[in-house]
């Protein structure tokens, strides 16, 4: 390798290091059980990393995710995603991308680690799992693991730079869990984006979430169908930089 090429390689590495030095942020996806946290994490990874890579399995049974899982080094490039979506003729875009439209390409890029967490709940009862056809022993084991998972998720908050608080927009948002999470994030000074998930369902009412927490940004999305996800990525790039 010539000295010139080596110099160029070093230079580009230095530029990348400088460019992203302060942008390696850990984003935690938090929320009550069955809000769609793993579906959202999988959606983000499918969009920005690999269509075949999953962070976890999502099912209709609550507390399916019982350990914190992390996918590191996800590079959000809104210019790229906007172009891809346009090429695929996606109809899910609801508005133009201001980060790109304004010509500020650097503003639309962010590198982060995504942390998928077990659902936060105030009560975990093995009998709830038996309703899904689980044997008693298995249900009790799941309840124990889910409880450990909640504690692990909360301990992780010490290492989190930003939170996507995911709520199910078909449910009443004014729950003890949501209020406690928001209050604690505010006290810690951790930036939050509230994602009102499941807007593809007929009884979704994301405005209820907006009304309940007017002091925070609320982005209605469907992690399952991919609706309005670009808006969420824009907010992430803006808020979590």
């Amino acid at each position: 390798m010539s000295a010139g090429k080596r110099m160029k390689g070093l230079l580009s590495r230095l530029i990348i290091a400088l460019l992203f030095r302060k942008r390696m942020v850990k984003i935690g996806i938090y929320g009550p059980p069955n809000a769609g946290k793993t579906t959202l994490a999988n959606r983000i990874i499918h969009t920005f990393v690999d269509e075949n890579e999953d962070i976890g399995v999502s099912t209709e049974i609550p507390h399916e995710t019982r350990r914190v899982t992390t996918r590191k080094g996800i590079f959000i490039d809104l210019k790229r995603i906007t172009r891809d979506e346009t090429n695929h003729g996606s109809s899910s875009r609801t508005d133009s991308n201001p980060a790109v439209a304004g010509g500020k390409r650097s503003r639309a890029r962010v590198v982060f680690d995504v942390v998928d967490t077990p659902g936060l709940a105030t009560k975990i009862d093995f009998r709830d799992f038996m309703a899904y056809g689980m044997e008693e022993d298995e249900a009790k084991r799941r309840a124990k693991e889910a409880t450990e998972g909640v504690i692990e998720a909360i301990k992780w908050l010490d290492d989190i730079d930003g939170v996507i608080l995911l709520m199910d927009s078909t449910e009443d948002p004014y729950t003890q869990t949501n209020v406690v999470i928001i209050g604690n994030m505010e006290a810690r000074g951790i930036p939050i984006i509230i994602a009102a998930n499941k807007i593809d369902l007929p009884d979704a009412a994301p405005h209820r979430i907006k009304n309940a927490f007017p002091q925070h940004r609320v982005v209605p999305v469907s992690a399952l169908k991919g609706d309005n996800m670009e808006k969420l990525y824009e907010e992430m790039a803006r808020v979590f930089r």
């Binding site: 105030t122 975990i124 009998r127 124990k144 504690i151 406690v180």
Partner: peptide, 26 residues
């Protein structure tokens, strides 16, 4: 009341847990 409770976790029985999220976080 929940605010005065000192425990972060209450074990009500095998497989039945009550979590005090506020205490766990704070």
């Amino acid at each position: 009341s929940p605010d005065e409770r000192i425990e972060s976790l209450r074990i009500l029985g095998t497989g039945i847990y009550e979590l005090n999220l506020g205490a766990l976080m704070e």
